[in-house]
């Protein structure tokens, strides 16, 4: 606690780096996951392959995957960023797929009846209706990403993990506690705000 009280600006700055790293990784992850999720929802043959493969990546312990990526990309932000994007894929694709497949067929028929092109059906009807489930996946991915990003501190990628690993090296318990509390608080805050978004999206859809 003492460290946190003595160095609030350092803890805040590292929390900012941590949040920025997670936000950037999630943005890239969503851009990759959207086409994959749409593909999986349209192709019953590809779905098990895609979800099985991404699930296997998700199962690999983060320190192991990170260690392998460090071999390929060296120390720093790059291996962490790739690991974060890779881990988020399973949760994002699974929920995009489930959200799209959960769209009421009557809604889809209505969209066809209104003469919407397949692209417009997806953009105007299916994705908006699937949004609550997709936001749910984003929330779970965000929590996991915040946790895994802590390891960035170990391979020179910055963020709140720096406090934890430096604290460990310096036998400074205050630093360790400040870093751990910071990450936990960040995770709880992001979880709460994305839960709120999920509810807001659901209410707007009237469900």
């Amino acid at each position: 606690m003492n460290y946190l009280i003595a160095n609030p600006e350092r803890v805040l700055r590292l929390a900012g780096t941590h949040a920025a790293m997670v936000a950037a990784a999630l943005a890239v992850a969503v851009a990759v996951a959207l086409p994959l999720g749409i593909l999986s929802s349209r192709s019953p043959r590809l779905r098990p392959l895609l979800l099985g493969g991404l699930g296997a990546i998700y199962t690999i312990p983060s320190l192991a995957l990170l260690a392998l990526l460090v071999q390929l990309f060296g120390l720093g932000l790059a291996p962490v960023f790739i690991a974060l994007v890779a881990y988020a894929q399973f949760m994002l694709v699974r929920n995009i797929d489930a959200g799209l497949r959960g769209v009421d067929p009557a809604m889809r028929d209505a969209a066809v009846g209104m003469g919407l092109s397949p692209r417009m059906q997806l953009l105007r009807v299916e994705l908006p209706l699937a949004l609550p489930v997709i936001v749910g996946g984003l929330r779970i991915a965000a929590i996991a990403t915040i946790a895994i990003a802590t390891l960035a501190g170990y391979v020179g990628g910055g963020g709140l993990g720096v406090l934890i690993f430096n604290g460990l090296a310096l036998h400074n318990t205050g630093m360790i506690v400040a870093g751990s509390l910071g990450v936990s608080l960040l995770a709880v805050l992001v979880d709460g705000s994305l839960r709120w978004c999920e509810r807001a999206v659901r209410t707007r859809l009237g469900g």
Partner: peptide, 17 residues
Amino acid sequence: SIGRTLPSLAVLKLLLP
């Protein structure tokens, strides 16, 4: 649900003291 949200490394470290 709070427990699920906490990062594992943080839990390991917070118990250390």
